[in-house]
Amino acid sequence: MLSGEAIAKLESRLAQLLHDCDTIEAAVVSTLDGHMCTMRQQAQQYSLERLATMGSTLMSLGDTITAELNMGLCDNIISENQNGIVAFMHINNDLVLVTLTTQKNALGMLLSHSRRCAKEMAELL
């Protein structure tokens, strides 16, 4: 498990993510085996515990699929839905970042902010 100091750093970066891009409604960092590390949302509207675990499931499936097809590493998984978009991506070998927005036309913004956040989180750790 991560140290308190590392989690504090992640929390701080998540807060910055939601501050910089207010179209991202919620963000979660979980371990690859499905434990929640930290989460943040604009309004307290989602139960994010399950999302952390599902993020690990999906990223692992993504890794399995890309390995099966010899397509290298899975960068991210995007779930485009009737009422919004969810993006899943690796921070490093052990952590996953999940971000979501309810604005259907904000895919680009969601991905660019999330990727930068994931990259910086990896550097922080």
Partner: peptide, 23 residues
């Protein structure tokens, strides 16, 4: 078998140096 195993991050799993299936 196609396995979706990852390293355990909790104490129990790490103590046993095990991986766990997540999907």
């Amino acid at each position: 078998p196609i396995a979706t195993e990852v390293r355990c991050s909790d104490e129990e799993g790490q103590a046993r140096k095990e991986t766990t299936t997540v999907a």
